[in-house]
Design a protein around this nucleic acid. Sequence first.
RNA 1: GCGGGAAUAGCUCAGUUGGCAGAGCAUCAGCUUCCCAAGCUGAGGGUCGCGGGUUCGAAUCCCGUUUCCCGCUCCA
Length: 516
Amino acid sequence: MALEDLFKKLVSHCKEYGYVFPSSEIYDGLSAVYDYGQYGVELKNNIRKYWWDSMVLLNRNIVGIDAAIFMHPTTWKASGHVDAFNDPLIDNRDSKKRYRADTLIEEHIEKIEEKVQKEIDKARAKFGDAFDEAKFRSTNQRVLSLQSKIDEIHARYSRAMKENNLAELRQIIIDNEIVCPISGTRNWTEVRQFNLMFSTEMGSTADGAIKVYLRPETAQGIFVNFLNVQKSGRMKVPFGIAQVGKAFRNEIVARQFLFRMREFEQMEMQYFVTPGTELEWYEYWKEKRMKWHLALGFGKENYRFHDHEKLAHYANAACDIEYKFPFGFKEVEGIHSRTDFDLKQHQIYSGKKMQYFDPDKNESYIPYVIETSIGLDRMFLHIISAAYHEEEIEKEDGTKDMRVVLRLPSCLAPVKLAVLPLIRKDGLPEIAEKIVEDLKFDFNCQYDDKDSIGRRYRRQDAIGTPYCITVDHQTLEDQTVTIRYRDSMEQERVPVAGLREIIAEKVSIRSLLKQL
RNA sequence: GCGGGAAUAGCUCAGUUGGCAGAGCAUCAGCUUCCCAAGCUGAGGGUCGCGGGUUCGAAUCCCGUUUCCCGCUCCA
C-alpha cells in the first residue's frame, strides 16, 4: 500500500475507533488542534508512563516536576523567545518567497546609500585633494535628493516599526517600488507578524493586566526551578529534572495530523553536568534514548540519528532521533547540548545566582545542560502508525479474509483484555461478567457478547487489545478459559484462577523497562 | 502564507442535463448459538462543511469562507 494511503487510513481509523478526533468538530474543527478519544487517552497515558518511569524510577539522580504553563514574562526575554520570533514577514506572490519586511526596507536604504557613496567617490576622483566631502554632501543636488529620500524612508520606517504598523511597512515597500530579488515583481502580500508564542492577559482589569505567554517549551520551567530542586532534593551534579506538560506554538504551517500541532505535549529531561563533561553526557543520552525507542520493538531499521549541522545559538551539539513515519523519516525526539546558555541568561535577567557549589571541586559554577526532549503526540503518532496493519488471512476453507489490527506493545495498549462468552446463553455470559468484575481492579477490561465470536475478535484487533478471554462450555466443567492472542490469533487454555497473574506478567511495563 | 485537490450517514463512497437524499460497512433491538468479520428480521442515523447568489426549483451552477490532504515555504 502506498504510504500516503496508509496515512489516510490511519487518520480514519483513529477517528472511527475513538483514538483521535478533530477539535470542536461540530464547528468545522480548529486548524491543527486535535482531541484524544476514549482509547487515545489511554494509549497516551501509557506512553507517558513508560517515559516517566524510565526517567524517574530508573535513575536515582533524576526527579520530576510539574511547572505551570504561565511563567513570568521575563522568562521568555531571557530565553530569547520574545526577540527571536517577532518578525514582520511578507510574501512575493510570483516567486513565492518570504522575506522579512524590515530587512527588505533596510536593504533598500542601503542601496540608496551606495548610490550616494558612488557620487562621492566620483567627485573625489574628479577634484582630488581639494575635495571636501561635507561640503559636497550639503550642496550636490543629486546627493541631497538621495539623502532626503533616505531620511524620509528611514523616518517612516522607524515610526512604523515602533508602532508595529504592518500596513505602513507594506506601504513603504509599495511606495518605494521595492521588488522581489528573485522574481523582480512587486506582487506583494500583506505584511504579517509571526510570533510563535501565544499570549494572553493576566489580571482582571485591562489597565492592570500584564501580557503573559503560553509557554512555547517546557524546558524553561525546569531551568528556573533548577536551584529549588537542587537544594530541596540535595541533588548533586550530575542530576536531571524531568517534566511532562503542554506547550503551545503558533506555527505558521501546522499539518500532518498529530505531527505538528499548535497545542502539544512535551516530555523533557534536563540533565545538569559539570562544564567540560557535557559532550560525554550528550553521547550517553543519545545512546540511552535510542535504547528506549528500540525497546518498543518496532524495528531498528525504522530509526536513525540526524545530527544538526546548523546549531541553535544555545547549543554546542544537537541531534534528532527520527522515526520512519508514513510520510518519511521525521523527528520524534531531540537531544541537545544546551551549554550553560539558559541558566546564564536567567542569572543575568533575574539577578539571582544560578550556580551550583560543587563540593568535590570546592568551587561554584553554572552547570552545563544536556536536554532530551520528546513530543508525546509525535510518539503517539509514531506508535499508532507503526502498530497499524492490514492483514490478509487465509481461512480454513481457503478463501481470503482481511483484518485491521493494531499491534501495540501489550503494556501500552488501551484495553488489556476483552472477556467474551462464546455464546449468549447456558450461563456463559454470567461467568464472563464475573471474570471482568474480578479483573477490572487490575486491568482495563471489556465485556462483549454481541455478534459472532469471530467478529468480536476483529473488533478487539481494531483497537489493539492484546488478549481475548473466551468463556466456552468447557469452562462450565473445568473452570478453564482460552486466551486468544491478537498477533498470532492462536489460543491457549488456562485456568480462570490463574488469569490475573498470567495477564499481569504480559502487560507489565516492567519487561520494557528492564531492557533499558 | 502561496499553488493544486477535496468536503454527501460513524467509516468508505455513489448521486445522470439543476427536479423525492442513496449504497456497502458500522451502530442499535431481536432471531440464530456458531472459535476468527460481512446468515435472517427490523430500527435509528443527513440543514449534502458553513454563508451568500442565480433559479419556479441547488448536493449539483457562481462567489466567499472554514477544515483536511499534497507540493513549496517555515519550523530558535
